[in-house]
């Protein structure tokens, strides 16, 4: 099993993005997903920049995949995607519209978690359209993924969301703009001020969710760090970028994959908690000790 670095879900200043990926070139990840997947208003890094970054990372030996937005709404959203497909890069399709563009362009693609592949026949269908790798829905646990793979007849690589704040929902509404009483069309790019999103607590002070523009995430960090021994049949494990400690997290996973006895205290890096309930067929917010 190899590590991958998922697309950055947050909105960071341009310089921070370039600094981040300059470091990534040396990290022990086999695949790097690039691109803006959350909001079409985010433009610190443009398509051409992503393609240039991708070229550099490819030269550093990474497989580069361009991820699409999960909610393609407008004509310009679709055109941006066509440009990426035409440039010949491999794409991660996070929307059915992206699948249509990839299959018409004849490029193979990664079927993203939001394509809702919950069974073997669905996976077979996407594979027939050109998917060479897929990510199960984030709510699918170990038993579900195994059941899907057991009833599929295609050969395809499987990637699982291994560490990061879970992207739970997408909306037309921007919750960051709403928080500041701004209209989405005039959001003043408030997401730039929240490099890991905005925590949402219950009225009893329980960390619950996390606002990231139009996306709602888990407050806690989902982590399969203690479940690595149970990932048989999984080809890739995704680590989702965070503004802080990302390098330490990647290093910790790489160390434990190399040596099952290695231990890092990831909980100390995540004050809002670590959860892994989804992988164990429970509520995502649950924590199942598995040592």
């Amino acid at each position: 099993m190899q590590l991958t670095l998922g697309p950055n879900l947050y909105y960071w200043p341009r310089a921070q993005v370039f600094d981040f990926y300059a470091e990534v070139a040396a990290w022990p990840v086999a695949v790097v997903y690039l691109g803006e997947v959350v909001c079409s208003r985010r433009h610190e890094v443009k398509s051409a920049d992503w393609l240039a970054l991708g070229t550099e990372l490819a030269q550093a030996g990474k497989q580069v995949v361009y991820s699409t937005q999960a909610l393609l709404e407008s004509a310009s959203d679709l055109q941006g995607l066509r440009r990426l497909a035409d440039a010949g890069g491999m794409i991660e399709a996070n929307d059915l519209g992206a699948v249509e563009i990839a299959r018409k362009a004849g490029v193979s693609f990664v079927a993203g978690a939001t394509l809702n592949i919950y069974n073997g026949p669905a996976l077979d269908w996407f594979a027939a359209q050109g998917a060479t790798r897929w990510m199960p829905p984030l709510e699918a646990g170990r038993a579900t993924v195994a059941a899907i793979l057991a009833e599929t007849s295609c050969a395809i690589e499987t990637e699982v969301f291994g560490h990061g704040h879970l992207p739970l929902a997408f909306s037309a509404r921007c919750f960051a703009a709403r928080h500041y009483n701004l209209k989405k069309d005039d959001c003043q790019f408030k997401c730039l001020e929240h490099p890991d999103g905005m925590p949402v607590d219950t009225r009893e002070g329980q960390p619950f969710l996390r606002i990231n523009g139009i996306q709602t995430q888990s407050a806690a960090c989902h982590s399969l760090y203690d479940d690595l021994a149970q990932l048989a049949g999984i080809d890739y494990l995704r680590i989702s970028p965070q503004a802080t400690h990302c390098r330490e997290v990647v290093a910790a996973f790489a160390a434990r994959l190399a040596n099952a006895d290695a231990r890092s205290d990831l909980a100390a890096l995540h004050p809002q908690g670590l959860v892994n309930g989804y992988w164990h067929g429970q509520a995502g917010i649950a924590t199942q000790p598995n040592l």
Partner: peptide, 15 residues
């Protein structure tokens, strides 16, 4: 309020 089919808030809290 969410894109239907793209929301797993419910299972995050309840399974």
């Amino acid at each position: 309020v969410m894109a239907e089919g793209r929301c797993i808030l419910s299972s995050y809290a309840t399974g």
